[in-house]
Design a protein around this nucleic acid. Structure first.
Lengths: 355, 355
DNA sequence: GTTAGCACTCGGGATAAAAGAGTGCTAACA
DNA sequence: TGTTAGCACTCTTTTATCCCGAGTGCTAAC
């Protein structure tokens, strides 16, 4: 008993049918719906073999067959052919992606929206991880006698700020010195480097003179760096799960909702995934709470350097071919768009596929 | 047939029981659980009267009675007695509210978290509406030859910024002039005033000289003001609804999820509500999609001036007494905390109930 | 190796009966 | 006259039973 052309064809047909209908598929239905050139009995024999090989399972003796995770894996790796989107679809996506939008964050939010709309799944998109972003300058600005605004600007024009309460009596000159000295120290360093903190402080004597001030500012500086590092995660189509037969069960629907509503946890899961298009099916997911869903993530690039992620989460029974095609198109499109602009998305150059 | 003491007592008992059990309550159960001093038969007669008066309904002839919206309204207005929280509860709340937190936004987020945790409902909290916030200064900072960072700082130390792409060739001096002139024009104005835009520009000649620069900066200035105005809405306990028997029905659960996942719409609904503790029960809610939930909102004050909102959304069958007590405590606590600090929450003075 | 035929399996839907909770009415009681 | 016990009646919920249909697996013939 070994894999052959016919078995593959039958397996493919079973997966296609099951993905469409969510019903276990039997030999007779299969032979009627697909032109396989053999009788139901033959299909039955092959199905039995496929089951022995671990590609199919049986909810109960008198039911049809259901593809196993192993089958989906085979399908994703070998059987599925990604289809190119039609020009209409491409235009619609590009249009919605950039419609009335000038900022990266908003574009990413739109990406999640579109992706969920097209796939009817729960989609997400994350702004770039700024680990490799370099600091351009640091500035402290006076607000009132006990408030200072701390501002960090990155090479890409990303800004993060924080209003800091200080008890130390300061004057504008101190802030200017501090701004200058810290910019000198940190300019060109990545945010990660800045956070690890082994940066040698120059202008020591200047700084020490206002020790009280720096001691209240430094913790906030670190906090602001962390905020800068933090990626935004946008999700859309959270209630799509209710339309999926597998989740007609309240407990499962609840579990799913809890999973995707823990946004911080989910973000961590996404960040820890490898770059490129990654598909994890059911128990292939490390986390137990994702053992009955499939997660697809892909990366887009900003300036060919920083990476953001987007993708979908849904039942293992999903149209992997369609979904991956759409994700491919969107990530390509985003990467092209953010190639020239340095990350704020306010691009005067049209991306290749825009309109 | 008119309302009397005994009817009220019975109605109250019915509401208490139904809120606890979610089951229609019958005369016998009622007389067993509550010491009403009369027999089930008498209770039956009174219940029948209460039904005629519109306070009770009947799912079907042979079922117990269920309180109507009118009953809840009466309960909320007259029958319910807010209980003070125990000191333990108060401490627990205050502790969680300020634990390791220095920023207003985070405190507000914690407030939503706590509120949902205690009430087992979906809770939300919104940062203050900044309409009345006044501008302190405006600053443009150079990033590179075609990027300028625009920063607006409010009197309270709130900061909003935006990286703007400019095609006009500028130098640092221009930005300094522009910053100065705009600060002169806008300082002391509220954000709303700034947005309506009938502010007379001084330094006309200076500005006109760099028309190309200002024309690309002004739209972004407005956009940044709008961003500053926009309140953040935090929600927590979104999946609590699954634990509520009324929502053991997938369609209802889905409707609820859709309602609270449209965050922008929900924010608008919250903003449009009056100040103070507002309870709207079922069809008292204007929106049709909230006709079978109750919404409770309350306001907290920052500096006695700005107001933020928080509250819960859940089934009309909820423990109005407990929920309102907790909300009362949290809003009072927040208002006290933000009285002295000017809104960033980094307060050295302990609020009354802290720890 | 493929296919037709057939007995067998099992879940799901339909139907019926029984159980249970509660009402509403009547008549007796204080 | 208000209160209460008693009881028939109502209606949902639960349980049991049956039957149908889709599908399998095996056997024997092609």
């Amino acid at each position: 008993m070994s894999m052959n052309e016919r078995k593959l064809k039958i397996l493919q047909a079973i997966i296609r049918d099951f993905v469409d209908t969510a019903e276990p598929v039997g030999s007779r239905t299969l032979s009627k719906k697909f032109d396989l050139g053999v009788s139901p009995a033959t299909i039955r024999n092959e199905m039995s073999d496929l089951e022995d090989m671990g590609f199919l399972t049986h909810p109960h003796t008198s039911a049809g067959r259901v593809p196993s995770e192993k089958a989906y894996r085979l399908y994703v790796n070998e059987l599925m052919n990604k289809k190119d989107l039609t020009d209409d679809q491409k235009n619609a996506i590009a249009h919605e992606l950039y419609d009335n939008v000038t900022e990266l964050d908003q574009t990413i939010e739109h990406a999640a929206h579109i992706l969920s709309k097209i796939t009817n799944l729960t989609a997400f998109a994350m702004t770039p991880n700024e680990e490799l972003e370099t600091i351009k300058f640091i500035q402290f600005l006076p607000v009132d006698e006990n408030t200072v605004v701390l501002m960090i600007v990155s090479e890409n024009g990303k800004v993060q700020n924080n209003a800091v309460r200080v008890s130390f009596e300061y004057d504008d000159e101190m802030l200017r010195i501090l701004s200058k000295s810290m910019t000198f120290d940190y300019k060109g360093k990545t945010i990660s480097e800045a956070l690890t903190g082994d940066i040698i402080t120059s202008f020591k004597s200047d700084i020490e003179a206002m020790n009280g001030l720096t001691s209240s500012l430094m913790p906030n500086f670190m906090k602001t760096l962390e905020k800068m590092l933090d990626a935004n995660l946008y999700m859309d189509g959270l209630t799509n799960i209710f339309n999926i037969p597998e989740y007609n069960d309240l407990d499962r629907a609840k579990m799913f909702m809890e999973l995707i509503n823990k946004k911080e946890d989910f973000k961590k899961k996404l960040i820890s995934r490898d770059d490129g298009m990654i598909i994890t099916i059911g128990t292939e997911n490390q986390d137990e709470d994702m053992n009955d869903v499939s997660l697809i993530t892909a990366t887009y690039r900003v300036d060919g350097k920083l990476v953001g992620k987007l993708g979908v989460i849904g039942p293992t029974r999903m149209r992997y071919d369609n979904v991956t095609s759409v994700i491919d198109f969107i990530t390509d499109n985003l990467s092209k768009t953010f190639k020239l602009t340095g990350g704020d998305g306010q691009d005067d150059d049209e991306p290749d596929d825009k309109y």
